Structures are given as C-alpha cells and as structure tokens.
Simulated assay, not measured.
Amino acid sequence: MEMWLNRSSTDGFILLGIFSHSLTDLVLFSAVTGVFTVALCGNGLLIFLIFTDPRLHTPMYFFLSQLSLMDLMLVCDIVPKMAVNFLSGTKFISFVGCGIQIGFFVSLVGSEGLLLGLMAYDRYVAISHPLHYPSLMNQRVCLQIAGSSWAFGILDGLIQMVAAMSLHYCGSRNVDHFFCEVPALLKRACEDTSLFDSLLFSCCVFMLLLPFSIIVASYSRILRAVLHMRSAQASRKALATCSSHLTAVSLFYGAAMFIYLRPRRYRAPSHDKAHFLQGMEVTQFPLAEKDPIAEPPE
C-alpha cells in the first residue's frame, strides 16, 4: 500500500469511457444520470423504510435492504467519477483511485452475488418449511448470511485489488472502459499476466458458480415442494414469491457469466462496456414481493 501512495500525482490511467460529446451520446449520458438518480433515491428510500417500519423487520426485507445498500454503494463507486470525467473532459484517474475503485467494485459485485445465492435458501425455507421459518431464519442466522456475503466479497475485492495494483504498467495508459475494470486494465500491463488471469478466473468461478449452485439446489427443492401442494392457489402464491428473486438472479448472473466466463478471444471492449451499463440499469432497484410467511402455503 505504501508503494502505491508514493506514486506521483501524474501516475494514473486515462479512462476512454463510452460517451463522446455527440448529441446521441449526450442523450445516453442523460439517461444514465437519470437511472443513477433513481437508483440513489429508490434504494435509499427502501433502506430507510425497511429499518424504520417494524412491519418490514422480516428476513426477506432485511436481505433486500442489504442488496439495496450494495447497489447504492456500487453506483456511487462508478457513476460519479464517470460523470466528472465526461463533464470535465479530463478522463484521468489516479493509480490509487483506480485501485480503490477496483476494490469496491469487485467487493460489492461479489457480495451481491453471494447474497442473491443465499437468498434462494431463504425462499426454500419459507415455502417448504413455513411453520419452522421463524426459528430456522432467526436474527442470528440472517446476520450470519449477510455477514458472510460481505466478508467473502470484501476478501475477493482485496485479493484482486492487490494483485492488479502490484503489476507493472508501461506504455499507453489508455484504458478502454468507463471505470477501472480489471480485465481492461490488464491489457496495459507490460509483464506476463497469465498467473493473474488464472487467479481472476478462479475468483470468478468461485464467486459466481458457488452461489449459482446454491440457487439451483434451493429451487429444485422449491419446485418439488410446489408440485406436492394440493392447492393450485397455494402453488401460484409460492411461485409468485420467487418471481422477483429469479428475475434479479437471471439478470445478475446472466450478465456476469457472459462478461467474465467467456474466453478472452471472444471479448470485445465495446460490448463489455455496453453490458455493464445495461446491467446497472436493470438491477439497481430490487422489487419486493409479499412475504409468503404471512400466509403459509397449504
């Protein structure tokens, strides 16, 4: 860390971004700014309501508040710097600032992915064991689930930040992205990055496929429980409680796997930047369904 802080103020990177100053890009930038504002206000309001309304002090809404907090921090990590660079025309980010952005981004994305995976277990308990739900998903268990998501995400972020910032960069400092994203940054390294590529791939596999496996296992049991329900109305209610979670999972993991688990020869920077913006637009404001515990399925 001391080595990073000792770098000169001119030692950094140029983020080429995704917008120019054409009329079309100005409209797109305005749209992104609007989405950022909605995400900021919407997630902030959701967190406030969940923590101030005693009726929302349930495991499902507690997890939603954690997802909203992660989304809030994620957009604040990326969009303000992107907006400042676009409006000022500098496009510069310091070496230390780039490292901090990488650490926050990887930590928050990893934490959100793990929490989405563990929320599938919450839905499984709610539908398959509604009478035992209060004891199985008590406050201690909820805190452990949320805490483990944050802890593993932060650990992943620290590992990737230290590894990326320990590389030697030379030549052009132009990064073909609108923020310091690790794969885009590695293209500017002037040393062999094969070991780091393997580390990055291993982290992605663990942080994506492990929670995805939990989701598949949980929903397999949920489907089996739904098929054994005698009432069609109860089955519809049970499936409805999972719809918002399944939508968020599909958007999050679909985009993440497409970006990070593709072979390098199939990656295009312009496509990756567009997918990041699309992912930010569709996942920032999680919607809550009615908690099935209020009316246990038959």
Rank of each mutant, 00 (worst) to 15 (best):
E2M: 15
E2N: 07
W4V: 11
N6L: 03
S8Q: 14
S8F: 09
S9A: 14
G12M: 08
G12Q: 10
I14A: 07
G17R: 02
G17D: 09
F19A: 05
L23N: 03
T24P: 03
L26P: 00
V27M: 04
L28G: 01
L28Q: 05
F29R: 02
A31S: 06
G34C: 05
V35I: 13
T37A: 06
V38G: 00
L40V: 11
C41Q: 08
C41V: 15
C41W: 13
G42T: 09
N43K: 05
L45T: 05
L46F: 04
I47Y: 00
I47N: 00
L49G: 01
L49M: 03
R55D: 15
P59I: 11
M73Y: 02
L74H: 13
L74S: 05
V75N: 05
C76D: 06
C76L: 15
A83E: 09
N85C: 02
K91N: 10
I93R: 01
S94E: 00
G97A: 07
G99T: 06
I100P: 02
F104Y: 11
V106T: 11
V106M: 01
L108G: 05
L108D: 06
L114F: 14
L114N: 00
A120P: 04
A120W: 08
D122Y: 14
R123C: 02
R123P: 01
V125C: 03
V125R: 05
A126I: 08
H129S: 14
P130C: 07
L136Q: 11
L136G: 06
M137K: 15
Q144M: 10
Q144K: 11
I145K: 06
S149C: 06
L155R: 01
G157A: 10
Q160E: 07
Q160P: 00
M161D: 04
L167V: 12
L167K: 13
Y169Q: 03
C170I: 10
D176P: 04
H177S: 03
A184Q: 09
L186Y: 14
L186C: 12
A189C: 07
S194Q: 09
S194Y: 05
F196W: 08
D197E: 13
D197V: 02
L200P: 00
F201M: 05
F206R: 13
M207E: 07
F212P: 01
I214A: 13
I214R: 01
I215V: 15
A217W: 07
Y219H: 08
R221N: 05
R221S: 12
L227E: 07
A232V: 10
A232L: 10
L239Q: 05
A240Y: 15
C242D: 02
C242E: 03
S243P: 02
S243K: 13
S243H: 11
L246V: 06
A248N: 12
S250L: 14
F252C: 12
F252H: 13
M257D: 01
M257W: 02
M257P: 02
L261M: 13
R264S: 13
R265T: 07
H271F: 15
D272I: 06
H275C: 09
F276Y: 14
L277P: 06
Q278N: 14
Q278F: 06
F285R: 03
P286A: 03
A288M: 08
K290N: 00
K290V: 15
D291F: 14
D291Y: 14
D291I: 07
P292N: 09
I293A: 03
A294S: 07
A294L: 09
E295T: 15
P296T: 12
E298Q: 12
